[in-house]
């Protein structure tokens, strides 16, 4: 099946079986390895990407549904995104395997709540597991990105 999508601002056409997982298409055909596979069943969020502005788990999406979709992966997050800087400032990436998914989930969160409360942060990121940080550095990074209150 041939599917046309816009990935990180670029039109691409992919030829692959329709039930292929978007995750495999991104990592395989398109060489975008920023999305990771942590569980393959929608639980961990390591494979998260944005589809039409919403955070979703690419391991649960069949390619057949992506015709015409606008997809953003970590590789397509604009370089001036305050989240990239704040994750760095706050040492929010430890082993880093959850980080791309976490940053995309945070991107969607900040689009909906530009000044999120701690509760909104905690509910908004609850589909992304991180085993390293205990989430403290991540809360701080998201808070910093939302207030523009850089430090370090």
């Amino acid at each position: 099946m041939s599917v046309k999508m816009q990935i990180n601002g670029q039109e691409v056409q992919v030829q692959a079986p329709p039930a292929s997982r978007l995750l495999d298409v991104l990592r395989g055909e398109l060489g975008l390895k920023g999305a990771k596979e942590g569980c393959g069943e929608g639980e961990c969020g390591a494979c998260a990407v944005l589809v039409n502005g919403q955070v979703v788990n690419s391991c649960l999406i069949p390619l057949g549904q992506m015709d015409g979709a606008k997809i953003v992966t970590i590789e397509g997050v604009p370089g001036d995104s305050p989240l990239l800087q704040s994750f760095h400032d706050c040492a929010a990436a430890q082993c880093g395997i959850c980080t791309p998914g976490m940053i995309l989930a945070a991107t969607a969160l900040l689009a909906e709540h530009p000044q999120p409360t701690m509760d909104e942060i905690r509910w908004g990121l609850s589909g992304n597991l991180c085993r390293c940080t205990g989430y403290g550095r991540i809360y701080e990074a998201v808070t910093q990105a939302s207030t523009g209150d850089a430090h370090g």
């Binding site: 929608g42 969020g45 649960l60 969160l109 509910w123 990121l125 609850s126 589909g127 992304n128």
Partner: peptide
């Protein structure tokens, strides 16, 4: 709806 899975699930 808000407690079915989490955001990435609810979006799909």
């Amino acid at each position: 709806a808000a407690v079915t899975g989490a955001a990435p699930i609810q979006n799909r």
